[in-house]
Design a protein around this nucleic acid. Structure first.
Lengths: 196, 196
DNA sequence: ACCTTTCCTGAGTGAGTGCTCAGTCAAATA
DNA sequence: TATTTGACTGAGCACTCACTCAGGAAAGGT
């Protein structure tokens, strides 16, 4: 059996960092090879093109982020659906501050330009968004069963809440507004939508 | 007499279209010169660098968009502040569908990468966002005076509403969700935040 | 020992880039 | 009429980039 794919992993990690910090176009394959301490050819041995590498970074982000989110929900026993919604919002904001550079990747960069012509890219993005929205949706449905949330369209309301939270994170990463200062207002506003 | 500044104007128009359709990096100065029917040197005669041209496109968008918004509000006599908020939301969504490609420009592209190192770029973006948020804010304040809107923090609520509307437009332009199908839900939800 | 497969290398390639600059030409000015 | 000005040109420059390829090293199998 060949050596464990340590170089491939190293390339992925460095690429994630550089793409996040400088963006797709301002990161050359040469930059990545230098920063990893690996020959340029090695990168193309493991990833067919630069775009493929970029997609691999997105895929890894997707898996890690969705995984963390589900793990968090499994570990926390919320007593009501409403609390679960609030917990999900908090966790999203928390992750955004912890993995700030990778959220940049998701919000700021090249993906939305590739996506229309690249089904795989589009699929990753779609999967990220729909997973997150579905988490909010499930929480709302649960809340409606336990009576902590009033009768609203779970799907539509979940989408609005997600849009709101994600939009604030965006403003934050662009330094246009400090999202954290709106945390109270955000939670309060969502509660106003949902409370019976 | 050859029309004054017609070439400069033509370059700006074509550049707007190409930057919107293909993004900053996938549009070369050569592309713009060919599409305009103008020599490459002409472009650099009118605009110092490619980035300058890109900024001129943003500036023009800013002026046109804010201008249109203010004009719309001047022409419509809303009877309450709440109606004004709803009118502003509608107008924003309407503009987004009419000027779709230019909203792409605002949402998708290079500006947020240039902005941190380019005060002029940052200023344009900041001006666009704060103008829009302030429109919502003023409407809320008016609504609080005429009693159509309850006691909330105008600034914070305006920011949340703007984030929400803008976020939906984003999902729409990325084809992740049809924002228009949420129009009713959006208006209804904002009303729930504001009504006494 | 040998062979095969996988992993890795880095100088090299050619297409493409933003930008320059010597020069053209028509209109304005003297 | 002679001169100056300023919009405009496009071949060419210096440079960067993603990607290739011939070949070497290491590990596994027999």
């Amino acid at each position: 059996m060949p050596r464990p794919q340590s170089k491939k992993e190293a390339i992925l990690q460095v690429a994630t960092r550089l793409f996040s910090e400088h963006g797709y176009w301002d990161t050359s394959v040469n930059d990545i090879s230098k920063a990893t301490g690996v020959a340029e050819g090695t990168i193309f041995y493991h990833f067919q093109t630069k775009e493929d590498l970029f997609l691999a970074v997105l895929q890894k982000f997707k898996e890690e982020f969705i995984g963390k989110f589900k793990q968090h929900l499994d570990e926390h026993e919320y007593s009501t659906g409403l609390e679960m919604v609030e917990g999900a919002i908090s966790f999203y904001l928390y992750q955004a501050s912890m993995m700030e550079e990778r959220f940049l990747l998701l919000h700021r960069h090249h993906y939305y330009q590739i996506a229309p012509n690249n089904p795989k890219c589009w699929q990753h993005l779609e999967e990220i968004y729909s997973s997150l929205i579905s988490i909010f949706e499930q929480a709302i449905i649960r809340g409606q069963k336990d009576g902590s949330i009033r009768k609203v369209s779970p799907n539509k309301k979940a989408l609005l809440i997600f849009t709101l939270v994600d939009g604030l994170v965006r403003l934050d990463t662009y330094n246009l507004y400090k999202a954290t200062s709106l945390y109270e207002e955000l939670i309060e506003s969502c509660r106003a939508w949902l409370k019976p």
